[in-house]
Simulated assay, not measured.
Amino acid sequence: MAFHEVRFPANLSFGSQGGPERRTDIVTLASGHEERNTPWAHSRRRYDAGVGLRSLEDLEALIAFFEARQGQLYGFRWKDWSDFKSCPASRTVSAEDQVLGVGDAATDRFALMKRYASGEQAYVRPVAKPVAGSVRVAVAGLPQMEGSDFMVDTVTGLVTFFEAPARGARVTAGFEFDVPVRFDTDRIQVSLASFQAGDVPSVPVVEVRL
């Protein structure tokens, strides 16, 4: 997939509207009961990049970013200000935020993920675009050092240990992350007069599967 490892200007994504989207197929039976199913294992997020524009300089930055990505052609990173940490937004990232797995003395690679729980139900979201320098890792509760104990691939979200964690050792991590997205349009329509009057263009952005 054509993807640029560059983040959309965070000051422009701040205040943007958006969030997760699900797809559910619903069939209503003759009895009135419903059959529900989904073809999607994971949710997909959508945003509007135009909402955060506050000045002509912001508009120029948006157009420059749009042109450099050639519209929908290249994907990019997006900071979702409502959900960009492995922990609640009010807390500081900790090496024990998320459980990645349990060691077996052979597996040395673990994928970053974030768990969303409500009651007895939970959804595990793969995290493929961690922010460089933000990843904290622990094995059996003991903090590990990046560069000497493990390395992180910020392109794939994989954590690789130089020595496989011992059998039964819980592997945990904390991190900040971006959402892989692309523009969902090949056109930006803007009128300078209407923009100065407070009318901002709609610039849809959609999450991409990696």
Score class of each variant (00 low, 15 high):
Tyr123Trp: 08
Ala95Tyr: 07
Lys85His: 04
Ala105Glu: 07
Leu59Tyr: 06
Ser202Gly: 12
Arg46Lys: 14
Arg69Ala: 11
Phe150Pro: 01
Val99Met: 09
Lys114Pro: 02
Phe76Arg: 00
Thr185Ile: 04
Phe195Pro: 00
Asp186Lys: 02
Arg170Met: 15
Ala132Ser: 11
Leu112His: 02
Ser194Met: 10
Gly103Ala: 07
Glu96Arg: 14
Asp178Cys: 12
Arg46Trp: 11
Asp149His: 11
Ala106Phe: 14
Gly71Thr: 11
Ser43Asp: 12
Val171Ile: 14
Val190Arg: 02
Ser118Lys: 13
Arg54Ile: 07
Val99Asp: 01
Ala173Pro: 11
Ser191Met: 07
Arg46Tyr: 11
Arg77Thr: 05
Phe161Ile: 10
Gly75Trp: 00
Phe110Glu: 00
Gly133His: 07
Gly141Tyr: 11
Ala95Ser: 12
Ala95Phe: 11
Thr160Lys: 10
Arg91Lys: 15
Lys85Cys: 03
Lys79Asp: 05
Ala10Asn: 15
Met113Glu: 13
Gly147Pro: 03
Val159Phe: 15
Arg77Phe: 08
Ala64Pro: 00
Met151Ser: 14
Gln144Cys: 14
Ala89Pro: 04
Pro204Val: 01
Phe150Ala: 05
Ala140Trp: 09
Glu96Gln: 13
Phe183Leu: 11
Phe162Leu: 14
Val206Tyr: 02
Ile63Cys: 12
Val205Gly: 08
Pro9Cys: 06
Asp48Arg: 06
Pro180Tyr: 01
Pro39Leu: 05
Pro9His: 07
Pro180Leu: 03
Val127Glu: 00
Tyr47Arg: 00
Asp108Pro: 05
Arg91Gly: 06
Met1Tyr: 04
Leu112Cys: 01
Glu5Gly: 09
Gly18Asn: 03
Lys114Ala: 05
Arg36Val: 14
Thr185Lys: 06
Val99Glu: 09
Pro143Lys: 00
Pro165Cys: 04
Pro126Val: 11
Asp83His: 12
Arg91Glu: 12
Ser148Gly: 01
Arg115Ala: 10
Val135Ala: 02
Leu100Tyr: 12
Thr156His: 04
Arg69Ser: 11
Glu146Tyr: 08
Gln144Pro: 02
Leu56Lys: 14
Thr24Cys: 05
Asp199Lys: 14
Asp153Arg: 00
Leu100His: 07
Pro39Tyr: 02
Arg209Ser: 13
Arg45Cys: 10
Ser94Ala: 15
Val200Ile: 11
Glu35Trp: 11
Val205Trp: 03
Met113Asn: 15
Gly32Asp: 12
His4Leu: 11
Ala138Trp: 04
Ser148Asp: 08
Met151Trp: 06
Phe162Glu: 02
Asp25Phe: 11
Asp97Cys: 06
Asn37Cys: 06
Leu100Ser: 04
Ser16His: 05
Gly119Pro: 04
Pro165Phe: 10
Phe161Gly: 10
Thr38Val: 06
Gly157Asp: 09
Gly15Thr: 04
Ile63Gly: 08
Glu163Trp: 10
Thr38Trp: 00
Ser194Asp: 13
Phe76Asn: 00
Phe8Met: 03
Val200Met: 08
Arg187Ser: 13
Lys129Met: 12
Asp58Arg: 06
Arg45Ala: 08
Ser82Tyr: 15
Gly133Arg: 07
Gly103Arg: 01
Ile188Gly: 03
Arg22Tyr: 10
Phe8Ala: 00
Arg209Thr: 12
Glu34Asn: 12
Ala49Tyr: 01
Val171Ser: 04
Ala64Asp: 13
Gly141Ser: 10
Ser202Trp: 14
